[in-house]
Every structure is written in C-alpha cells, then in structure tokens.
Amino acid sequence: MTAPDPTQDWPSPLAEISRLKIDPERVEQDMARLVLGLMEFLRKLMELQAVRRMDAGSLTPEEEERLGLTLMRAEEALHRLAAQFGLQPGDLSLDLGPLGRSV
C-alpha cells in the first residue's frame, strides 16, 4: 500500500485516496453520513454472508426466519434513520479509495 501522500507526482494506479468532507454548514448531516455509512457497511456485510449461508443450506428454518427478520428490520431502521438526516440510502456508501470506485 502506498504511503498517504496526496501531493506525490506520480501515484501508483491504486493510490488514490478519497475524502469524506465534513462541512461547517452541514455538520449534522455529514457526521450522520459517516456513522450511518459505517453501519450500512456492516449491515450489508451481514446480509451478504447470510445469503451465502442460505446458498450453502446450512441454516435451519428457524434460523432463516430469525436472521431474515433481523436483517430486514435493520435495513428498515437504517433507512429510516438516514431519512431523518435527509440522506438517501445511496448516500451511505463510503468511498474508501483503493477498494472503491474504479474510475
């Protein structure tokens, strides 16, 4: 991984670093985006892993119900919270640079 020097002249192809901007005029919204973005990150991770377990057939019907219900409610709750701060679900994807967008 390349050192975090944003002034370097010729970064390696993967060395771009993103910025999460916290603006004085909209502190609440920007902070909410940071926190809710991290929560959304973890929620998606759990959902995708649950799907993988479904595919593997390693869950009992009760586990499927509990897991599904919890993930469904977590998604609803997160989207509700985001809406309170005027954020769309799409605003919650944090762009962490090298692993993020490609173009």
Binding site: I17, S18, I22
Partner: peptide
C-alpha cells in the same frame, strides 16, 4: 487482509 484509506476533511481541511 484488506486495507482501505480515507481522508476526513473538515471545513475543507484534510
């Protein structure tokens, strides 16, 4: 092992 990086930019300042 994964690595990610991000600047928190406050009021226009990294």
């Amino acid at each position: 092992v994964i690595e990610g990086e991000l600047w928190l930019t406050v009021a226009g300042i990294d």
